[in-house]
């Protein structure tokens, strides 16, 4: 790393601190992915890395190349903008898919669908009418 010596001390300290902080946040998020118990808790953990972690690493890269090349290097903003836009989309898609799979298996871990949803889909609507008369007949008979 010969080029690193060309940087002033304040830039080296800033780059080093931001880089280690971002990598540490990514590690904490991934450890949460390892340690949390259910999927719906685990889906929160990696967002630590996808928001603050990657922002700190990108800021570190921007400072490094701006100081190294003595011109403004801003194209890391592209990755940051892309991450900010896409992460909520992917995680909400994934969580909706997981919720759909858990509900279609009648898992007890997730609450059932709201009553306003049942007439919209034919499958759960037929189940609702079938279990409706069966429930009162159980205790009476």
């Amino acid at each position: 790393m010969n080029h690193a010596a060309a940087l002033p001390v304040w830039a080296q300290l800033a780059v080093a601190f931001l880089l280690v902080a971002g990598a540490g946040l990514a590690l904490i998020g991934s450890l949460g992915l390892l340690r949390l118990r259910t999927f719906y808790q685990r889906v929160h953990a990696p967002t630590l890395g996808t928001t603050m972690g990657i922002m700190l690493v990108l800021a570190s890269s921007m400072i490094f190349f701006t100081v190294l090349e003595s011109r403004l290097v801003m194209h890391e903003v592209l990755i940051g903008f892309f991450m900010v836009v896409t992460t909520p989309i992917t995680l909400m898609l994934l969580t909706r898919a997981a919720l759909y799979r858990d509900r279609s298996e009648q898992s007890e871990e997730v609450p059932p669908a709201a009553p306003s949803y049942t007439p919209a889909s034919e499958g759960s609507g037929a189940q609702g009418t079938a279990s409706g008369p069966a429930a009162p007949s159980g205790p009476s008979g």
């Binding site: 780059v15 080093a16 590690l27």
Partner: peptide, 23 residues
């Protein structure tokens, strides 16, 4: 002072590799 950035990059690589191992 060059060693600071060197070690920081090395530490960040270790941390990110550990994070990738968790994933």
């Amino acid at each position: 002072t060059a060693a600071i950035l060197d070690w920081a990059v090395f530490a960040a690589q270790i941390l990110l590799t550990a994070a990738m191992a968790c994933a």
